[in-house]
Design a protein around this nucleic acid. Sequence first.
DNA 1: ATATGTGCAAACTGTTTGCAGCCGC
DNA 2: GCGGCTGCAAACAGTTTGCACATAT
Lengths: 136, 136
Amino acid sequence: MTGQRSPEKLLAEHNIKPSYQRLKVMEYLSSRRNHPTVDEIHRALVQDIPTLSKTTVYNTLTLFARANLVRRVIVDDSEAHYDVLTDCHGHFKCDSCGRIYDFPLGSDLLGEEGLASFEIRERNVYYRGICSTCRD
Amino acid sequence: MTGQRSPEKLLAEHNIKPSYQRLKVMEYLSSRRNHPTVDEIHRALVQDIPTLSKTTVYNTLTLFARANLVRRVIVDDSEAHYDVLTDCHGHFKCDSCGRIYDFPLGSDLLGEEGLASFEIRERNVYYRGICSTCRD
DNA sequence: ATATGTGCAAACTGTTTGCAGCCGC
DNA sequence: GCGGCTGCAAACAGTTTGCACATAT
């Protein structure tokens, strides 16, 4: 059972030097799994680290993404969102409240027959609509 | 059998005034179904319409998208692609050649149980990887 | 004559890059 | 002391906006 590794361990396993800002970013991502944007992460962390720059958040996330520690999620034309969960799941973005929900994805379900002999490296599935809370 | 309507008809059906540039954009989209970017459309059409501005292409595509004549396809973090086919299909982008392939999508296949009582308005499915041509 | 489409230029936004200074080992 | 992390400022790319001119009916 691998479960929830600590930010320190995660970084160590991927040979990433555990600087204070990196640890904080990873900590933020793994606690609140809100698919935050760069801006949200930055706004949240500047409180503890007043000198934190957005550049560092960008650098850090790019680094994490290359190491497959996080995934850049496109649910939205404008900003990129980041997700620590690397297992295969879809995203649903509510047009009304803007919240992003995860939903499980079966493995081989889609019409992937059409992609025989293609090497699939990444699957992105995102829906848009109105969530149950906003419909009430 | 509805099949291929002419650009004129398509625009008329959606109460869109058939200006020269609009017709040309629609014509381009429906002939080469290449999921072109704004830039590609513009580059292609300036040849016939030397005064054509990108702004007009943007305006036109936004107009078409609102009328559900085209779909904005996000397969790529940077530029938006446009697609006349509004039926449900997935996109595969080759990391090597950059080409975008369509593939059919079954209807209710995914793990959508998790989204019971959500109102799904739009499904986006895109994969990344290496296409069969580039693997050889 | 009026409403609407077009296109230039400038603004905007998210992201990237260059580079000087700083910190930890 | 050295490698490399940080963060400012400037560059960048795609897109949007403001506005004057052109165009069609």
